[in-house]
């Protein structure tokens, strides 16, 4: 993890986000996002004691549906954009743990 609190450990985060970045991009993001984090520091001074976090603009409880089946995709529809497929399944290269 990063030592400086306004410095992002780009390698760690890019790995979590599963995006390869060039060294140039890493350097640029490091600097740009460092500036953004400095800007974010505005928040650290705010007193939020006892304030509820807002997850939804207008929360309501129990938006539920009855358990009734509706028609879905055929295999063809489901995979119409899958370039790599066989036997109506999506092919992925070897999954390594």
């Amino acid at each position: 993890m990063a030592e400086d609190k306004n410095s992002i450990d780009i390698d760690y985060v890019a790995n979590l986000a599963r995006i390869d970045l060039s060294q140039e991009e890493k350097d640029r993001f490091q600097k740009q996002l460092g500036d953004v984090l400095v800007y974010f520091e505005k928040l650290s001074a705010v007193d939020v004691e006892g304030v509820e976090p807002m997850a939804h603009p207008f929360p309501v409880y129990n938006v539920l549906e009855e358990d009734v089946v509706e028609e879905g995709f055929t295999a063809e529809e489901a995979l119409m954009n899958a370039k790599h497929q066989r036997n109506n399944q999506v092919i992925v290269p070897k999954v390594v743990e």
Partner: peptide, 9 residues
């Protein structure tokens, strides 16, 4: 979490 709280404010 902080941002969600400030959002409330």
């Amino acid at each position: 979490l902080k941002a969600q709280k400030v959002r409330t404010l």
